[in-house]
Simulated assay, not measured.
Amino acid sequence: MAVDRLLWKITLDVVVLACVSFPLLALLLWAEPYRRGYFENDESLRLPYKKQQISEGLLAGLGFAFTIVTITITEFVRDKQGKGCGEKFLSGVLIPGWVWESYVAIGIYTFGAACQQLTVNSAKYIIGRLRPHFFDVCKPVADMSSPLNALGYIQVYNCTGTNEAQINDMRLSFPSAHSSYAMYTAVFFIMYIQVKGKWRGSKLLRHSAQFAALLGAWYVGLSRVTDHMHHWSDVAVGFLVGTSYAVVVFLFVLKPKKYGMPRSWETAQPEMLPQPVMAR
């Protein structure tokens, strides 16, 4: 029965991840963003197009590799220290405890990453905010005979730009998916090693690693502004979404209480003082 439950758990994990990932894939492949209009005098849309420093593939690869290496090393060390969950049997095969714990943590991290990406990308397609390089990429020609353009807000126009991929992407500014994923990974890492990456060495080493992860996510967000891919508000909301998902996933899905997280809010039991000997 224990083996059956373990296989059933893995099967359910795969199904759940597929259910979250498929809508995200469908959104990226087949959805059309909302066609938002523009004002001719909007200076925030007149920045030149620049090649982005950090592509989606590079960010995703680095983020997942960084998280997988961190979790695997941490769980291996914990297992050697006798803090692991013990060995597991899967179809008659002995699985080390640190392998199982790594699988659980990586799976939960992946689930949270898929959820936050689905959240931000669905918002992109629903809102359709124009990127700062809109004029440079689209080179719009307005239909001034349309009554929809009479008030100065141009809703009927044609793009004369030649790069179809950039034209399709120019309406996906809000919020920043790069910033959301980078901050999600950084906050998840910070909380993970804070709870499970304990050792007897310098505490500043652990906190320096946490600060470096946070600084890396901060840089990713700032690069999206300097690359003219996002407005600052897009990045700010992306940071907020990523942080929120990391906290919720870590606290309520990974559930760090079982790893011995100190509960400082609980009141300690008062020490019992010895009762005085009664004088006769």
Rank of each mutant, 00 (worst) to 15 (best):
A2M: 11
V3M: 09
D4P: 08
W8T: 15
I10W: 13
L17I: 13
C19R: 10
V20K: 07
S21L: 14
S21R: 11
L24Y: 15
A26S: 14
L27V: 06
L28R: 03
E32F: 00
P33V: 02
G37F: 04
Y38E: 00
F39R: 15
F39T: 12
L47I: 04
K51Q: 14
S55F: 06
E56N: 10
G57M: 07
L58F: 12
L59V: 07
A60E: 13
G61S: 04
G63V: 10
F64L: 12
F66S: 14
T67P: 08
I68M: 12
V69D: 00
V69Y: 13
T70R: 02
I73A: 09
F76N: 11
K80Y: 11
G84S: 03
C85N: 09
F89N: 08
G92E: 08
V93K: 12
I95A: 03
G97T: 05
W98R: 12
W98Y: 15
V99S: 04
A105C: 08
I106A: 13
I106W: 03
I106S: 10
G107S: 04
F111N: 12
A113G: 11
C115Q: 00
N121S: 14
S122L: 14
I126S: 09
L130E: 00
R131E: 00
R131D: 05
F134D: 05
F135R: 03
D136V: 08
D136H: 15
C138R: 08
K139L: 14
P140K: 01
P140D: 00
V141H: 12
M144W: 13
L148R: 13
L148I: 05
A150D: 14
G152F: 09
V156H: 05
Y157W: 07
C159K: 08
C159I: 05
G161S: 07
T162C: 04
T162V: 13
N163L: 09
E164S: 10
A165P: 02
I167R: 05
F174K: 00
A177P: 07
A177E: 09
S180L: 05
M183R: 02
Y184D: 00
Q194W: 06
Q194L: 07
G197W: 06
G197S: 00
G197H: 01
G201M: 10
G201R: 08
K203N: 10
L204G: 06
R206E: 12
S208H: 11
S208P: 05
A209L: 15
Q210W: 09
L214Y: 06
A217C: 07
Y219R: 08
G221K: 03
R224I: 09
V225S: 00
H228Y: 14
M229G: 02
M229H: 07
S233D: 15
S233N: 15
V235M: 00
V235P: 03
G242M: 02
Y245V: 02
A246R: 04
V247G: 00
V248E: 03
V248P: 01
L251S: 14
F252K: 06
V253A: 12
V253G: 04
L254V: 02
K258M: 03
P262W: 01
R263C: 04
W265M: 06
T267R: 15
A268N: 12
A268W: 09
A268I: 13
E271A: 15
E271P: 06
P274V: 10
V277D: 05
